[in-house]
């Protein structure tokens, strides 16, 4: 489903953000990607949805290779990969439903199916009652749920989440985690970047990868006896 092979990413000013990173994610697997700020988590996620390209090595995701996929073809990959962020990135001035409808419309859903599908997606993330609320009127947890509903419009095979609980309180974070686990249980692979060790420890069965200064320093699948990360 996801495979990074000896991936290195160098930036002109920042220097090396990822250094010879390799790992694999199987279908329907749930993985935490952790590490301190600047360890390379967000860079990894950007490479995975081809917002960026590796300096060397190869990223493969849902059958798309960073070496072979042109910029013009990225949209095909994006329809198989959902993405959520710490800052939600909802469109202000639009309701929760309109945010989801917007994603449906721009990905080519027919007019007749947009509204029922948007309602179904909002129900899936537990927001049936909040569809008509403006994005800015929702709580952090609710906004993240709208962002997840939007990420699901293409029924993706993989969900990439970049610090999705970073702006949420503990209760909302747990709620988002449960939502991710439900999605994962339905067959969707989830790669969630987080530096919240409490959250990671709360789910010891979930595989954890740890990055430090751009290098993969821990994989719980390879060292199952270790506790999460060296931290």
């Amino acid at each position: 489903m996801i495979k990074l092979t000896k991936v290195t990413r160098d930036f002109a000013r920042r220097g090396r953000a990822l250094d010879d990173v390799s790992f694999e994610l199987r279908k329907a697997e749930f993985v935490f990607l952790t590490g301190h700020s600047g360890s390379g988590k967000s860079t990894t996620l950007r490479l995975l949805h081809l917002a960026d390209r590796p300096t060397s090595g190869e990223v493969r995701i849902c059958g798309f290779s960073s070496d072979l996929t042109s910029d013009r073809e990225i949209w095909k990959l994006r329809r198989r990969v959902g993405m959520v962020f710490q800052d939600f990135r909802l469109l202000p001035g639009r309701t929760a439903r309109e945010n989801v409808e917007f994603a449906l419309e721009v990905t080519g859903a027919s007019r007749s199916e947009i509204l029922p599908r948007a309602n179904r997606l909002l129900a899936q993330v537990g927001l049936s009652a909040k569809g008509g609320a403006l994005a800015e009127e929702l709580s952090g947890g609710e906004r993240q749920r709208v962002a997840v509903a939007r990420a699901l419009v293409n029924e993706p095979q993989v969900l990439l989440a970049d610090e999705p609980t970073g702006n949420l309180d503990e209760r909302a974070s747990r709620g988002i985690m449960e939502l991710f686990r439900e999605l994962n249980a339905s067959g969707m692979a989830v790669l969630m970047a987080t530096h919240d060790l409490e959250l990671i420890r709360a789910y010891p069965a979930i595989r954890t990868l740890e990055l430090s200064e751009g290098r993969l320093v821990f994989d719980s699948a390879a060292s199952p006896a270790s506790t999460t990360g060296g931290s």
Binding site: I74, W75, K76, R78, R79, M83, A103, V106, T107
Partner: peptide, 17 residues
């Protein structure tokens, strides 16, 4: 620009955007 960002993110084609 945020709309363009979201459109790219969810897989709208460049022409469509």
């Amino acid at each position: 620009r945020e709309e363009i960002y979201i459109m790219r993110l969810v897989g709208a084609t460049n022409g469509f955007i």
